[in-house]
Write a protein that binds this DNA or RNA. Structure first.
Lengths: 356, 356
DNA sequence: TTCACGCCTGTTAGCGTTGTCGGCAAGGGG
DNA sequence: CCCCTTGCCGACAACGCTAACAGGCGTGAA
């Protein structure tokens, strides 16, 4: 049973290719072939090698492999704050999909998306010899970074702007916002207010575009949108302003968290939802269905975004990519925070005139 | 200006050590020293080398370095679903802290934490030659995996159980639950009901321990805890059961999401919070302050957990670790969902008797 | 002057894997 | 019989870097 000289000692270091080769009585190259191109080795030899691989619990040293092939099997993801629901979900799906295809993923979460921080993160990932990078870049400020990436690195962006030299996957924010707005108009509201996200977030701006577009197309009055910071706090504070204005009967809020704050502000002001004011959110976080009342919102399929991003990156790495921008369709989920516009004189009317 | 034979051609492949050495007129070894032990090189030579490094935009090939040193500068994190608030926050903090110390992090998100899936994830990370691994293992089922890790790999667990052969960092769930329970008792409630998390989650069980411990110590009645699945949906459904029981005046809920569902169930049943029923959550998610009413809850400092985990892993990798279990103190955040127990006969009393 | 020593730098070898090429045996056609 | 092909396998070099050792030079003491 003893193959070499001494007894079967407690192996201290992991087995390497040479150990397997020795045990199987073949050359290192043959072992390598068994692992990488099995059909180029005779079945009998292959079986002997595989047995040795199992016996020694051999796993290839990826650093060594990478050094010679140039490929690492590692993908990089650079993202803003992965605590946020959107980035976290997208990251999760990218990782799951990548793993199924044999890739690992290495991450770099950034506090902010400046040109400097993005390029720095990409450089670090690159030093690890990642085969490709996905950048979750929902900020205006990321564009500058995206335009100065090393040209030979396969990159795909998620939620990036429009004049970007890399393929982009994104939810169609404009369409989602338009759907939300049309839904409110179809319920009889004369117009729709908007509580948007921060000015430097692309999603926020696209949602404003979509919302404004519908109102203008329908000839409705367009009130200047308020801008929050995605937090429930800002939704609450700006919500109090809107709650104090009796002409407000329908609000499209830029995300579900702000919508939560908004609902609270409306309740405190004594304005009932949806009887007096209708509210629509954006994202469909898991909690949204349990807000009071359950929130009508626009669902983003982050999972689909992640899968698309991965596959696009795969194409890019294979050099066969050409598709430039892939849009994922959002879906309006109608719950109980939206309802028919209140009839004039029944509360929430624009202004109270005698007669009219 | 031309250094070698031909003109300064558009460099297509990234510069390597040799290129820098040639440009600086030194040997490769000297360049390596400048990068790894700068004080062992004369200042003048060092300056020349650094100039060449900058000019060629040289960055070391980590795979090559790793192949010879055995260290990769990469840490692995294996976790359950990183979409959840706790794991996502912890991961984020680990990554931030690690980056500041020059480490990158590679992730493996698991759908479930079985022995098999954990060991598989660790094996994959190991093949990438990570220097150490943090395992976020809030499940009972993870223990088996944690007991069969390769002995020579530095590992730190977060939120793991108690008979584990690796150091563990965790929030003191028992203390947090005890604080929540005592808070409710101090408001005059006769006892406290509990809506707990899934049976296979350690956190859920520790919270039950803490809650039960206080009630028993105070000689209060201990009702069998209900078990949800962390989702707002389960909080809502089980909440309806509790809401229908007029003797319920105080509920400690296992996490904020379920508390959200619970609040909704109470509202639907016409039971006012906190006048008739007090509710405490756990986690302090960013939304909790904007629930209706704002939620009293137990704050977990995931950031601190992440930092501790990283530093413990660092010690472990240096071979100087001995500390076995590090507890992070949670903090009770009192908001508006808790209030004095209703006086008998004022609604919410146990049962209505004439006289009494 | 000579030797010892410290400082700085270069030479050699090797980390574990895969690409390339070449060799050997078996088989088929001339 | 030879020659050429085909299938299978092994030797060698290379990927880019660093550990270990060796050597040149200047300085100070014997």
């Amino acid at each position: 049973m003893a193959e070499g000289s001494d007894e079967h000692s407690p192996r201290t270091r992991p087995a390497v290719l040479g150990d397997v080769a020795a045990l199987a009585g073949v050359s290192a190259m043959t072992v390598s072939r068994v692992l990488n191109a099995p059909d180029r080795v005779r079945a009998e030899t292959r079986a002997r090698v595989l047995a040795a691989v199992r016996e020694l619990d051999y796993w290839p040293n990826l650093a060594a492999r990478q050094l010679v092939t140039g490929r690492s099997g590692v993908l990089g993801v650079v993202s803003i704050d992965t605590t946020l629901y959107g980035p976290a979900s997208t990251l999760y799906c990218i990782e799951q999909t990548a793993r199924l295809s044999g890739y690992s993923v290495s991450i770099a979460s950034l506090g902010m998306l400046s040109r400097r921080s993005i390029l720095e993160a990409v450089r670090r990932l690159r030093a690890q010899s990642v085969d490709g990078v996905v950048i979750l870049a929902p900020h205006e400020s990321a564009a500058d970074g995206l335009r100065h990436l090393p040209p030979d690195l396969p990159v795909v962006a998620v939620d990036a702007g429009e004049d970007i030299p890399v393929p982009v996957v994104t939810v169609d924010q404009r369409a989602g916002a338009a759907r939300a707005t049309r839904h409110l108009l179809s319920l009889g509201h004369e117009t729709v207010w908007h509580l948007g996200g921060p000015v430097d977030w692309l999603d926020a701006n696209y949602r404003i575009d979509g919302w404004r577009g519908v109102l203008e197309a329908e000839g409705r009055q367009v009130h200047e949108p308020l801008r929050g910071d995605w937090s429930p706090r800002s939704g609450y504070e700006l919500g109090r302003r809107l709650a104090a204005d009796p002409s407000v009967t329908a609000v499209f809020v830029g995300n579900d968290q702000m919508a939560l704050g908004m609902l609270r502000a409306l309740r405190e002001a004594g304005r009932r939802v949806p009887e007096e004011v209708s509210v629509v959110g954006f994202d469909d976080v898991p909690e949204a269905a349990y807000f009071s009342p359950p929130l009508t919102t626009v669902r983003q399929e982050f999972g689909e975004v992640g899968r698309h991003a991965f596959h696009l990156l795969l194409e890019r790495m294979a050099g066969t990519a050409q598709s430039d921008r892939r849009l994922v369709e959002p879906e309006l989920v109608v719950r109980e925070s939206t309802g028919p516009a209140p009839r004039p004189g029944q509360g929430g009317t624009r202004d109270v005139r005698p007669g009219g």
